[in-house]
Design a protein around this nucleic acid. Structure first.
Length: 837
RNA sequence: GCCCGAGUGGCGGAAUUGGUAUACGCGUUCGACUUAAAAUCGAAUGGAAUCUUCCAUAUGGGUUCAAGUCCCAUCUCGGGCACCA
């Protein structure tokens, strides 16, 4: 008998798939073979950054989930689109270029080549005719086009502001890319730097992005994170008049009901009015405070939570009480949120209370603390009845919120307001290896978008990839590229004139490139549009999207672009991803994160080359545990999965004279020793009905498990099937069924089996009538405790009286029901009888 | 601090709506084959007691005929947010 040799059969089938282009999707459902049904499924993994290190086991888990589903739906005769691409812009390639002088273009090409080779060795059912690469000019041409659409609608704009700056990577970062005050890439502590930067106005869609979360079939974890990130607060905007001035200070508060308790105002250090509020006595101190705060890193601000601040010397009028209250400056108020100014109500807000304590400012209770509240006496932040609040005394705080805003509104100094924690998306990057922003400037700094027919703005080759010392990327060194002549409309005269312009040297955040790639997949070679309308309405939105990262950033941006392009009439849907699967990480055997420095990295290609093969690797990673949980690599368990596949092989390829087939004679058949393959132990024979039941139960279990994404238990079910077949012997139909069920997980082995069995791969369907056994084991409990198991025929399940009689005939049941039976509970569905004694 | 998850054998983990806890795999032990080992095949494997019972799903309560599953409290671990007014 031939032995299971993964090396040989995997190579064989990979060559066949390559030659036949097996996994090409039928374009827009056209040219579909007649036997193919019409439904489509569009699946994708989050495309990888092709690093020089090649695939790691985490990729394999992610891609195999998509592959199992791809093959499963394909076998179910669905028209499936499963493309692949590479997210190739980014710092690693650029840093590598700075170090070695090898261009990012060429390093990327090498890495993609390597990735593609490795992906093919894993036997993935990828439609290779749709491979995309974000740094290919044919692709980024359309990224630039997307930018221009946003620009035309005023959703891409430039503004000067303080931004997170990573001093090591020499670039600004989006809020989403700063983790605990550190750069998400290199871990360096970030700084604030004032710069003129490009933004996308994602905040225009804040409301819809929040509201539509409810309808997403996404993990709750991600949905909650997105809700928190958007951070909607309802409240009011209130104007406070500055004493002896015509200025008003706008504040945002979620608690307008506490306005009578506002005993001072606090402005953020960056607030534009601060310089007008100071006087000769306070100016120096305030200026000093402002400079110090700006220098302070975010880490320092977090570590030192003790309140700091200075008095401006000015006062405002509390519109509730009419009293004069002091205006302070403190860094606990953030310029980027609300109005950058607050009314401080120390009696009912812990932060304000702390500040008031430190600087000896008045504290005024305006809510009566209800009895039994565990809050401190001095600072109660719950609901209650208003006191010291003029004619609002006695009103419940919940009601007062609206009433007080209405009252302020009548006076023209207050209104309802919704504020979001989310800020606009900062997209400028001072880097070379990114998508150039298609904008140029004249000598006065006026912006000119590059016309769409002149795209792409190609990334020029340079000698030296280091950013220059002015904070500009290496693009600034490509002088031939940097300045050019273009016919533009003169801003004053409106006439067409030729002008010498300077290109923008910032490139787009890589997340911009990945915000639309799912739509490029539907028509990757279209040179007339970013995506073809007919193709997009057939394939998109993406039905199942699988990844393990980017809970807010990428998954929020892609939703934003989807809504924007839907508004432009370019997409016929408003959410890009129907179902999101968020898979867990694979850790080293010691449970720690795999990392090169710890030397605990498992290389998937090593696992294949050790002799296990791709099928074992794939099946193991599906068997390792629930797909959405982190898991630790266990080399011993890999061996267990290999043994399982070996047993599948042996069932099918056992020598002819020893083939594991049962004699089909009558209801109960036995297999004689000479019929039994050496490798499969002693077959003990089984009735035809039991054999059918086993087969159909397994089909149901595996099918349901894949639908529920319980890949680990799907593999278990197949293992049980094989174990059973080893005992009972297998008919050809069992082997065909096994091979079909196995194909999504171990496609090479399954194809080899199907070829030998001369079968197609159409996904099997179970028949309910075969799921029922002749006899079932019925559980007899007394007071909920298992006391006996009786075997009864299925027909008898209908006859409760008979069942009770049978149960009471059991010695053990009698022993526990000596004092009589008070109540009988019979659950037919659970095959359970509970006697209450 | 606030908001989510999760705690089941020696280990990874099963248990679809409350209904036989511990499927499947690893490990361990025994047996078969073998001169021997590996591989393979078969059997056993929660703990105690010993022939049929008791105790076990982080801990303590509760609801129920029946709880890993539902409710309350506590502990531990993981994740997210973190001066967002």
């Amino acid at each position: 008998m031939e032995r299971y040799n993964p090396q040989e059969i995997e190579k064989k089938w990979q060559q066949i798939w390559e030659k036949d282009q097996t996994f090409r999707a039928a374009p827009e459902g056209k040219d579909l073979p007649k036997n193919k049904k019409t439904p489509k499924v569009f699946l994708a993994e989050m495309f990888p950054y092709p690093s020089g290190a090649g695939l790691h086991v985490g990729h394999v888990r992610n891609f195999t989930i998509v592959d199992v589903l791809t093959r499963f739906y394909t076998q179910q005769q669905t028209n499936v689109l499963r493309p692949f691409g590479y997210d190739t812009f980014g710092l690693p390639a650029e840093n590598y270029a700075i170090k070695t002088g090898i261009s990012p273009q060429s390093a990327t090409e090498t890495n993609i080549h390597n990735f593609r080779k490795q992906l093919k060795r894993l036997g993935y059912a990828i439609d290779w005719s749709r491979e995309i690469n974000t740094s290919n000019p044919d692709y980024y041409r359309w990224t630039q086009w997307c930018f221009l659409q946003l620009y035309k609608k005023g959703l891409a704009y430039r503004k000067e502001s303080y931004q997170w700056w990573c001093p090591v990577d020499q670039t600004v970062l989006a809020n989403e890319q700063v983790e605990n005050g550190h750069c998400w890439r290199c871990g360096t502590e970030v700084e604030k730097k004032k710069m003129k930067q490009w933004f996308f106005k994602i905040t225009d869609y804040a409301d819809e992005l929040l509201a539509d979360i409810d309808q997403l079939d996404w993990p709750d974890k991600i949905k909650t994170m997105q809700r928190n990130w958007i951070g909607r607060s309802e409240g009011a905007e209130i104007d406070f008049e500055v004493v002896d001035s015509k200025d008003f200070i706008k504040v945002f508060t979620t608690r307008p009901d506490t306005i009578f308790g506002a005993t001072f105002l606090v402005l953020a250090p960056e607030h534009p009015l601060v310089s007008k509020l100071v006087n000769d006595d306070t100016k120096q101190k305030v200026d000093q405070y402002r400079t110090e705060t700006l220098k302070k890193s975010e880490i320092e601000r977090q570590e030192n939570k003790e309140k700091t601040g200075v008095f401006t010397g000015s006062y405002a009028i509390n519109p509730g009480t009419g009293e004069k209250i002091p205006i302070w400056v403190s860094d606990y108020v953030l310029m980027g949120y609300g109005e950058g100014a607050i009314m401080a109500v120390p009696a009912h807000d812990e932060r304000d209370f702390e500040f008031a304590n430190k600087f000896d400012l008045p504290v005024k209770q305006v809510i009566e603390k209800p009895e039994g509240s565990t809050d401190s006496d001095e600072c109660y932040h719950g609901e209650g009845e208003l006191i010291n609040s003029g004619h609002f005394n006695g009103t419940r705080t919940e009601d007062a919120r609206e009433q007080i805003v209405a009252w302020l509104h009548e006076q023209g100094i207050g209104e309802q307001k919704v504020t979001y924690r989310m800020r606009d998306w900062l997209i400028s990057r001072q880097r070379y290896w990114g998508c150039p922003i298609p904008i140029a400037y004249d000598e006065d700094g006026n912006e000119y978008p590059i016309p769409e027919d002149q795209l792409p703005v190609i990334i020029p080759e340079v000698e030296d990839y280091k950013p220059d010392n002015t904070g500009r990327s290496a693009l600034a060194k490509a002088t031939d590229w940097l300045t050019f002549e273009m016919e533009v409309e003169d801003k004053k005269t409106g006439k067409k004139v030729k002008k010498t312009l300077t290109r923008e040297t910032d490139t787009l955040d890589g997340y911009a490139c990945s915000s639309w790639y799912l739509w490029r997949y539907v028509s990757p070679h279209d040179d007339k549009s970013a995506w073809n309308q007919e193709a997009i309405s057939y394939w998109a939105p993406t039905d199942i999207y699988v990844g393990a990262d980017h809970a807010v950033a990428h998954l929020l941006y892609i939703r934003f672009w989807c809504k924007f392009f839907a508004d432009q009439g370019l997409l016929p849907f408003r959410e890009p991803v129907k179902t999101l699967l968020y898979n867990g990480y694979i850790n080293a055997p010691d449970g720690k994160k795999m990392s090169k420095s710890k030397g605990n990295v498992i290389d998937p290609l090593d696992v294949i080359d050790q002799g296990y093969g791709a099928d074992t690797l794939r099946t193991y990673e599906m068997f390792i545990g629930p797909y959405d949980m982190d898991a630790a690599w266990d080399p011993k368990s890999v061996g267990g999965v290999y043994r399982f596949l070996n047993r599948c092989w042996n069932l099918c390829f056992g020598e002819e004279r020893n083939a594991p087939s049962r004699k089909i004679s009558d209801a109960t058949r036995s297999v004689t020793a000479s019929d039994t393959p050496v490798t499969t132990g002693v077959a003990r024979g089984v009735s035809e009905k039991e054999a059918l039941r086993l087969r159909h139960t397994t089909i149901k279990r595996v099918t349901d498990d894949i639908h529920r994404h319980n890949f680990n238990t799907a593999v278990s079910a197949m293992m049980e099937y094989v174990n059973e077949l080893y005992k009972t012997g297998a008919e050809k139909e069992d082997l065909v069924t096994l091979a079909k069920l196995l194909k999504p997980f171990a496609p090479h082995l399954a194809c080899e089996m199907l070829e030998k069995l001369d079968s197609d791969d159409v996904w099997p369907v179970w028949d309910e009538k075969y799921l029922v056994a002749d006899t079932v084991e019925l559980v007899v409990q007394v007071n909920g405790k298992l006391r006996a198991k009786i075997t009864v025929s299925v027909d008898d399940l209908e006859d409760q009286e008979k069942i009770e009689k049978l149960a009471l005939a059991e010695k053990n049941v009698q022993a526990f029901t000596k004092d009589g039976i008070k109540k009988v509970i019979y659950v037919k569905k659970a095959k359970l009888l509970n006697l209450v004694a």
